[in-house]
């Protein structure tokens, strides 16, 4: 039997994380394992309060950890993706203070106190965000790996309201690479939601 990736475990880990252990995993020596020295010099773990999708997490984090790794590895919110880890693909796009940013180039510590919204926070209960529904309708993804970043970026785009034409949407979505090549369908989905919101106003 494979080790069961029980979804309930996520809650357990989150609970532990919220309890303050964070990334301070204990090292257990195995065969051929070097004993780890206690941390000396710079790099002491620091308390960081992250607010993600409306939920507060009191964490103790390595100052090095990016917001992206904190989401994926500590909070196990793996919807946000790592594609390049250098701000070159946009798969890690999340909303901080309502603005789209690359979580890979953002230190977790530097967003303490700012609300973070990820793909997991777009839907309301079972009701998909209009962009999520439009992405499905227009087949605005294939493998789905860049999709959370495309969605968060599109949420940011609509809020910024600098894009009207298809070409403007393309330009404003250009920070999100899609290697499967779903770009035209992403544009169609974004435009449908943008126009629906405009008509509703």
């Amino acid at each position: 039997m494979p080790p069961d990736p029980d979804p309930d475990r996520r809650d357990f880990i989150q609970g532990v994380a919220a309890g303050g252990l964070g990334v301070a995993l204990l090292s257990t020596a195995g065969p051929g394992v070097a004993a780890a020295d206690p941390p000396t010099g710079p790099g002491r773990a620091i308390p960081v309060q992250l607010t993600v999708n409306g939920q507060d997490h009191a964490l103790t984090l390595d100052p090095r950890i990016s917001l992206l790794d904190a989401l994926r590895e500590v909070l196990h919110l793996t919807g946000t993706k790592k594609g390049c880890d250098h701000g070159q693909c946009g798969a890690c796009t999340v909303l901080v203070d309502g603005r789209r940013v690359n979580a890979c180039l953002t230190l977790a510590a530097s967003v303490a106190g700012s609300p973070v919204r990820t793909v997991e926070g777009l839907a309301t209960g079972d009701d998909l965000h209009p962009l999520q529904a439009a992405f499905i309708k227009h087949d605005a993804f294939q493998c789905g790996y860049c999709t959370p970043g495309q969605l968060c970026s599109a949420v940011g785009l609509l809020k910024e309201a600098h894009a009207t034409t298809d070409d403007e949407v393309r330009e404003q979505m250009s920070g999100n690479l899609c290697r499967c090549g779903a770009y035209p369908n992403v544009v169609a989905a974004v435009q449908e939601v943008r126009l629906a919101a405009r008509d509703a106003r």
Binding site: P3, P5, R9, R10, I13, L25, T28, R72, H76, L77, T78, G79, T80, K81, K82, T118, V119, E120, L122, A123, L128, Q132, F135, I136, K137, D139, F141, G144, Y145, T147, P148, L151
Partner: peptide
């Protein structure tokens, strides 16, 4: 037809290889 796994992919619940957490993971 819409993709049967579309909902998982747009909600971030479609899990890729690096997203399986196991006890004691290094």
């Amino acid at each position: 037809l819409d993709r049967v796994d579309g909902r998982q992919k747009v909600t971030g619940t479609a899990r890729f290889a690096a997203e399986y957490d196991l006890p004691g993971l290094a």
